[in-house]
Design a protein around this nucleic acid. Structure first.
Lengths: 178, 178
DNA sequence: ACAACCATGTAAGTAGTTACATGATTTA
DNA sequence: TAAATCATGTAACTACTTACATGGTTGT
């Protein structure tokens, strides 16, 4: 279960409010761990309850945002969790189910949807490459930068793979049956 | 939601009982869609309720296995679903969270676990290549065979990518800090 | 002051997980 | 005939999703 630890990580990097976090889970962190604002608020409550976070006193009278920061116990928990061994989660790839279904009840218009998604993945790849050029132009000196670059490059590899797959799929799906 | 359609696909390919399906979801189908026997039995009940499946009369007196086959309505539903457009599911990659956490609270022994998982992925890749050599040795003549080969090759690409990633990660994690 | 939006939250529902139960069949 | 295993199933729980609610803040 990673959501609490994804939040701890995000908050170690930068103390934030729920809505700040929701924003970050739509961008950088969200590229490898998605969460909605409902999940985030609920989990922040639990983490505070567990004594891993504290809410900073509402600053400058503006009674709106509730900014959290990670307590030492939370840092310890995060360090413990990172070192924990985990098995790879069982896969669930909806598209592969569709491909296999197509192969037994097809032909269908599955190709249309793959075409559409191909465009999405090309966009995402372009975005990742842009981030890479902006944030990791030089030779990634520190260990921290190297690890963060590696995470980004995993995203790039995945999008590249997806695009390759989609192109192969289209080649098969769009070839008229003999 | 793909489980019902994964089951329909599996049953179009081959009418089966719940436990047969559980076995197939540990092998071929399970390589891209995981399901436990509890999910399978529950869902078979729903699909029969919906009129998409029927249970064959228990054959030859052995009152044990309940074999299902797909009814025409189920085939129609499957064809409809394949052509439906879907957005890519938001990612949730636990390992990437761990990498990013390592980068802020590390160094930890994360490398040990990656080493262990690297071996698992190498095994899986070897298995996929074996299946490929056995089932798709010749030039994949029919459309059906081409699509099934493509699904398998997606698995091969993914495992290959994972191995590449793990090796890069280990190179960083095992370099002593300057 | 009114509308639009922002930040936080509640409620209800679904998919998937984990632990346990029951009867039927095979094996020692 | 007792033990082990197989096939089917129930129950309780957790994570995630979708839809809605409330009160505070900003802009006109």
């Amino acid at each position: 279960m990673s959501l609490p630890h994804a939040l701890l990580t995000a908050l170690v990097e930068q103390p934030s409010s729920g809505s700040d976090l929701a924003g970050r889970f739509d961008r950088s962190i969200g590229y490898f761990w998605h969460a909605t604002h409902q999940q985030i608020y609920r989990e922040l409550g639990r983490l505070e309850e567990a004594g891993w976070l504290e809410a900073l006193p509402p600053e400058s009278g503006r009674g709106r945002k509730k900014v959290y920061r990670v307590l030492p116990a939370g840092r310890d928990e995060l360090r413990r969790w990172v070192a924990e061994s985990q098995d790879p989660k069982p896969l669930r790839d909806e598209l592969m189910v569709r491909m296999r279904a197509e192969s037994v009840v097809g032909p269908t218009v599955l190709g249309d949807d793959i075409q559409r998604r191909l465009a999405l993945h090309q966009q995402k790849l372009a975005l990742y490459r842009e981030i890479e050029a902006r944030d990791f132009a030089n030779g990634s000196a520190s260990r921290k930068a190297q690890l963060q670059h590696l995470v980004l490059s995993a995203g790039i590899m995945q999008e590249t793979m997806w695009i390759e797959f989609a192109e192969k799929a289209l080649a098969i799906l769009e070839t008229p049956e003999q």
